[in-house]
């Protein structure tokens, strides 16, 4: 049997099926709050603060209302938060306390089935948030071009990337305290990744640093699509997330194998 055969049984859907059954009883409050959070930000900052600001110039050089500037960024952030929550806290609990993966890997499932299944679940939550937020954006007239439709697959890719990396990192953590580091990284990344103002406010070295962070690529990708200002640079953003997905899957699979099958 090939090496992949012991890592992957082409049965990730059974992990998704399990997650769908389990989520019936899961905390609806968590899901609903994740949906409304970006909408509150949009109303308070986009329209409240935005009424003082007027228009902002995007990376592509277009002048857009402030709300239309930050809405795509908040969309990317919502995808990130949804994916991260499912792939870190939930996964950590399943590894350490529920011993869920131990049970799964005593069957014919391989670690890649588990990783893909869990990431798909994380991604579907992120996707759900995204669809809801896109509808709100449309209703408020913040989708400025037809390319906004492409923001949906873009957001799924962003969620996939964060879920894969999130699960990989979580599989290496040992204590709940270490989990706090994830929030410690996420919050500043949300605030400073050219989400709420253009990156040009920073001196050049800081700009480079921000441009190395994953969220910046997500924000720019989605913003380009919803404002209709396209550029070849968007391919780089996509590539960035593809690499995140691959790296995340490789490390997660490897780590689950070490934890439960060696």
């Amino acid at each position: 049997m090939s090496a992949l055969g012991s890592l992957y049984a082409r049965n990730a859907r059974s992990v998704v099926y399990r997650g769908a059954l389990a989520s019936k009883s899961s905390n609806a409050v968590v899901i609903i709050s994740g949906f409304f959070e970006p909408i509150f930000y949009l109303l308070a900052l986009g329209f409240g603060l935005g009424s003082l600001i007027g228009t902002v110039q995007t990376q592509g050089g277009a002048e857009v209302p402030y709300a239309a500037f930050i809405a795509p960024a908040l969309l990317a952030v919502a995808a990130m938060n949804g994916a991260i929550f499912d792939s870190t806290w939930n996964v950590f609990f399943k590894i350490k306390y529920a011993k869920l993966y131990e049970g799964m890997l005593a069957t014919t499932l391989g670690p890649l089935d588990v990783a893909l299944g869990e990431i798909t679940l994380a991604l579907s939550r992120g996707g759900l948030y995204a669809i809801g937020f896109m509808i709100v954006m449309q209703a408020l007239g913040l989708n400025l071009a037809w390319t906004a439709l492409l923001a949906l697959p873009a957001v799924l890719l962003i969620a996939f990337g964060f879920a894969a990396i999130g699960m990989a990192i979580t599989s290496y953590l040992n204590t709940f305290q270490q989990m706090d580091w994830i929030n410690f990284v996420l919050l500043p990344m949300f605030l400073f990744s050219a989400t709420l103002y253009p990156i040009t406010v920073y001196p050049e070295p800081v700009q480079w640093f921000v441009q190395a962070l994953p969220l910046w690529h997500g924000v720019e990708l989605v913003r380009g699509l919803t404002t209709g200002v396209l550029s070849p640079l968007m391919l780089v953003h996509v590539l960035y997330y593809v690499v995140m997905v691959v790296v995340g899957l490789v490390f997660t699979t490897r780590r689950l194998r070490v934890l439960f099958l060696s």
């Binding site: 049965n11 099926y17 059954l21 389990a22 869920l100 014919t108």
Partner: peptide, 24 residues
Amino acid sequence: PQADNLDSELRVRENLLVYGRYFG
């Protein structure tokens, strides 16, 4: 296994359904 690792997020019968699906 020595320590029960039943899926506490699922009901009793669901535990059997899901586990069977893991085997395809």
